[in-house]
Structure formats: structure tokens, C-alpha cells
Amino acid sequence: MPTTGRRERKKAQTRRALSEAALRLFGERGYDGVTVAQIADEADVSIATLFAHVPDGKEALIFDDGDERGAWLVAAVRERPPGMPVLEALRRCLAARGPFAGDLPPDLRRKRDLIVGTPALRGYSRKLWIAAEGPLAEAIAAESGRDPADLTVRALARYILEVPEIAGAEPDPMAALHAIFDLLQSGWAE
């Protein structure tokens, strides 16, 4: 079992302090009412240190690097039960996360609501989702016997990755998710 070195632990601790400070300040003052300097001050680090940990700016402070999104979706496709259609596996995967998760603890619910209610954070979240297009298209192609470069495979992957942005801001996100997947399912032959 590999152990994390002191430097990595310190970096993770600073990143966590920055994220917690950002969430706290965004909750108190709203996203637009908080500057990067205020977040750095709240976390007791310099602005240079803040940007060393999150070069993308304050939007990135409350997100991870986004790689886990692609991993969840690829695993949902590759590890689905025998006979389960790819789209059903992806529907279930998304339904358990982000704006669709119904049983979140209060702190994660506040974070989700902040993201959904803040255009800059929703935009950054969308960027992270869209970054998973390649791996998701490859997984869909492998499971459907199609070429990953096939336009229909790439389009399906992109449409699925747009679901959190489109459905997440609806009054009933789960119903919107199901409506979108029903539409996609009618046009995708497995």
C-alpha cells in the first residue's frame, strides 16, 4: 500500500483549506461577492499559493480535477450488469450524482445548490463534464462495436455529458434527466 509523502499531504491540506474557505465565503457573500484575495486571506495563504493550487481561478476552488466524472461514466458502461443497455447504465450513474442526487448530506446539498445557482460555477462544472467526452465515447464504441471516431458515438457521448447542465437547473432535475434519456434511447440502437 503506497503512502503519501509529506509534501503531497501538505498540498492536499492547503487545497482542502482553500476549498473550505471558498465554500464558506461563497455561502456568506455569494459567489460574485468574493474575491480571490479574500479566499486566500481566509485560508491563510498568499494569492500566489492559491493560484499554484488552482490556476483556473476561483471557479475551480470547489471542484476536483474532473477526472472522476469520466471514470464514473466509463465504469458505468463497462461494469453494467449483463443485458443492461448502455444508456440505462449511464442514466443510473448520472441519477445518483450532482444535481440529481436526492440523499446528499446538508454540506454537499449546499455545495450542489451553490453550483446550480451560480452561472460561473455551472459553466466550470460543464467544462469538467465535457472533458470526459473522449473516454466516454471510447467506452460506448467498445460496447456497441462501433468506431470511437463515429460521429454518432461522439454525439451520444456529448449529449450525455450535457445532461447535468441542461437538466440540473430544471425545477425537477430528475424528471428532466429521465425525459432526456428517454429521448436519447428512442434514437440510439444498441
Results as ranks from 00 to 15, higher is better:
35 T>S: 15
43 A>L: 01
119 P>L: 12
75 A>T: 14
138 E>G: 14
78 R>M: 11
150 D>I: 06
135 P>L: 04
26 F>A: 00
147 D>L: 06
96 A>Q: 14
91 R>I: 07
117 G>H: 08
189 A>P: 03
86 V>F: 01
117 G>Q: 03
147 D>H: 09
96 A>M: 05
41 D>W: 02
170 E>K: 12
95 A>Y: 07
130 I>A: 13
111 K>D: 05
107 D>I: 03
181 F>E: 08
38 Q>H: 05
178 H>R: 13
29 R>T: 04
76 A>D: 01
165 E>Q: 14
42 E>L: 00
18 L>Q: 07
130 I>L: 15
83 G>W: 01
126 R>F: 06
166 I>H: 09
152 T>F: 04
107 D>Q: 07
19 S>V: 01
114 L>D: 02
162 E>Q: 13
131 A>C: 00
130 I>D: 05
53 H>Y: 03
12 A>P: 00
16 R>K: 10
68 E>I: 12
173 P>Q: 10
106 P>Q: 04
27 G>M: 01
159 Y>P: 00
149 A>S: 15
157 A>T: 09
181 F>Y: 05
80 R>M: 02
67 D>K: 14
90 L>C: 11
73 L>G: 02
131 A>T: 03
79 E>I: 02
160 I>L: 11
47 I>N: 06
159 Y>W: 13
30 G>L: 04
171 P>N: 12
145 G>H: 05
103 D>K: 11
132 A>Q: 08
112 R>Y: 03
108 L>D: 13
177 L>W: 02
132 A>G: 11
92 R>D: 14
181 F>D: 03
140 I>N: 06
151 L>T: 09
114 L>T: 05
55 P>Q: 01
2 P>S: 08
121 L>E: 06
153 V>I: 15
13 Q>H: 04
52 A>K: 11
55 P>M: 03
135 P>M: 06
84 M>K: 11
147 D>C: 12
29 R>H: 15
82 P>C: 00
123 G>T: 12
183 L>K: 09
147 D>F: 03
101 A>N: 14
